[in-house]
Design a protein around this nucleic acid. Structure first.
Lengths: 156, 156
DNA sequence: GTTATAGTTGAAGTCAACTTGAAGTCAAGC
DNA sequence: GCTTGACTTCAAGTTGACTTCAACTATAAC
């Protein structure tokens, strides 16, 4: 095993928990980048680990890779992002999470009243018809995280 | 316009807010069913509206169509489901929603401590690494709803 | 009876976020 | 210098929940 400050895909995959195929995919999407050896193999700087942490965190908050990509694009070029840079990026998550929690609470409370009546009316029931929760036009909670279901068999 | 107690796809789509193509899809998946006219057109009983309400509600709570299908299969055959039948089906949602809310809260609280420190460590940070939240093996919150993002352009 | 509107089918397409496969190349240890 | 395991690329496949399309047929209103 080499002992450089640069990481191979395998090493980065192991340390980050992100599959090597996903790392290549992310590179294609411009989310991370790598230098190449003379033999064309990828080598990653350690900073990529933090970038991956950001990506995973953002996904868990419900952002799409496109949105994450846009967020990462606001990082300063040229210099290594500081703690403050990362903090700025993640500050908006707080609001989004609050919105999500509020939306779920609304759903739950609607359910509580539904369970008593068994209504499930398409017109009136907050559970079957939460359009006020994920508003089509106005402000409000539009985002809920992607499913954090039991890890699919292929993902560790 | 006919005035039967049976609904055409168009009418059902309009009243339920579910696209006609989705109704056909659901029929193929065995989630709903329909009788046919002599000319092979679908006609739906009004009870399908409630079934659709259940499906939408269950989706909003985070169930997949497969899970919904399994739940619907426990409804009594032969007779029209009663209020109590629907109530029984939806009672477990309450727990699932509670789990989801707890998971998001955990994420948010983790974020609150992260924002101060800018850590985003893959090993330690609860936001980038919420495996304790969507536990791989043990009990706990495994489910979060599918994204309730802004309605895609094609959906009314 | 005509016509406009609504319905029919099956196959193929979409989207996000990846994974898988095939066929070949590189690097590290002995 | 050779073997073994890790790496390379590009294309195609996967999943879930639908939508879209093309070519055709039914129904309702007049």
């Amino acid at each position: 095993m080499r002992t450089t400050d640069l990481l191979t895909v395998g090493e980065l995959s192991e340390r980050s928990g992100v599959a090597a195929s996903a790392l290549r995919f992310y590179e294609g999407e411009g989310l991370i980048d790598a230098t190449r050896t003379s033999g064309n193999q990828r080598r990653y700087q350690r900073g990529v680990l933090r970038r991956l942490a950001f990506i995973r965190a953002a996904q868990n908050v419900g952002l799409s890779l496109d949105e994450i990509s846009a967020a990462l694009a606001t990082l300063p070029e040229g210099r290594t992002p500081t703690r403050t840079d990362w903090t700025r990026l993640s500050r908006t998550w707080r609001d989004r999470l609050d919105e999500q929690i509020a939306a779920l609470r609304k759903l739950r409370d609607g359910l509580d009243s539904c369970i008593g009546c068994g209504c499930l009316s398409l017109q009136r029931c907050a559970v079957s018809n939460p359009s006020d929760v994920a508003a089509q036009d106005g402000a409000g909670a539009r985002y809920l995280p992607r499913p954090l279901r039991a890890a699919p068999p292929s993902r560790r």
